[in-house]
Computed example of a mutant assay.
Amino acid sequence: MTQMTDVNTLTISFMTNKNYNQLESIAGDHNVVQLDIENRVEKHLPIEVEVTGEPAEGYIIGDQTTNQNTVRVSGPESVVDTIMSAKCSVSVAGRSSDISSSADINLYTADGKIVEHDNLTTNISSINVTVGILATKAVNIVYSLSGEPEEGYAVDGEPEADRKAVEVAGRSAMIDSVRSIVIPPEELDINGKSENYVAKIDLNQYLPNGVRLVTDEANGFDGKVNVTVNIVPIVKKEFDVPMENLQVINVPDGYDAEILLESNGNEDKQDNKKVTLKVETKGIEHFYEGVEGSSLTGVIDIQDYLSAAGQTSPAEGVYKMKILFTMPEGISETQIHYADIKISKADTGDTE
């Protein structure tokens, strides 16, 4: 090769070894060639695995592993500089188990175009890729509380969370044993609280090894849930319960039991024939909707009274016995209420 000039040209020399002694000269239509010369450079790129397709219903894509994670590219500097990524593709369409395959490596520009050039070389042209396929399952989240609100306040209803159930994923043998995600009470400690309590809980820390959450970051779910415990004031209300709403039950055979209205009740000023018992209650305001004294009922259980006194049968007389009121949800008595009960032997009607 003749010497290159400063402008990267070479003079072309023509020769032949056939009939050379019969030729006076050899010439071409060009006697100079222009060369495009640039530096040869190398670049190391991480290999990205692109997983295409959707697994079978009830399964998701798990981890991907490769036998190589980088590729070395060498070639003309102007070409290598355009290469921004190295990728290979594996399809998992319809799969319900792991897949392992060989995948070719492609080089890409920043705008996603494949780079191909005769003078480009790579140290490897393909890699082995394994894609895990995981089974999924929907499970409930169980929330519980610890502590008690400040005196005069109560928890109104169950904890409210932006998610009551989630999907988990893992090997079938692992997720089969997961029945629910149980949040320990310490996460929702309401001790001494007098207003709504809000907590952000990371569900990931309460999953067994080998089980993961199926997150949906596109819709804002990253494995964390917001939980609100509603804490409201307790109100007190007094009701006039008609004594006729009380019933004596479990009277022993051979005895009669009678509620002594005069000693227990208070005459209603608007109806002298109706006797009522004042019952003070406490509860959460909205539970009182539609509740009236006339709708409350109670029982006096003679057998419970005898059992507590260690007796099997009563003696005749008047006894102060506890009234067991049936209260609506969210409402309770502020104190125990009693009624005077007269016990007497039943009149059998026998005559001597």
Rank of each mutant, 00 (worst) to 15 (best):
T228F: 00
Q22R: 14
L277S: 08
S144K: 06
Y143Q: 01
S102F: 12
K269F: 07
E54F: 04
K193P: 06
E167F: 11
N8S: 15
E151H: 00
V33Y: 08
K269R: 09
D111S: 15
G152S: 07
M321H: 06
V92M: 04
V51G: 03
S91W: 03
L296T: 07
V225P: 06
P184W: 04
S177V: 03
S332M: 08
V178G: 00
N69L: 08
G192Y: 04
S91I: 08
E333C: 12
A218R: 07
T351G: 05
V227A: 06
N39C: 01
G75C: 11
Y143V: 01
V115C: 08
E160L: 08
D118A: 03
G94K: 11
T70I: 13
D104F: 11
R163E: 08
L35W: 11
S97Q: 12
S102Q: 14
N17V: 02
I133W: 10
L10G: 12
F221K: 15
L207F: 05
S194V: 02
D350I: 12
A93C: 02
V168S: 00
A135L: 00
N226P: 14
Y59F: 14
G192I: 04
K137D: 03
P185A: 13
K345Q: 15
D118V: 02
T66Y: 00
D240H: 15
Y143F: 10
S295N: 14
A135R: 00
S172T: 03
A86N: 05
A308F: 03
V198C: 01
G317E: 08
D256S: 13
N191A: 06
V41T: 14
I259W: 10
S177M: 07
I234N: 05
T351D: 10
R40N: 11
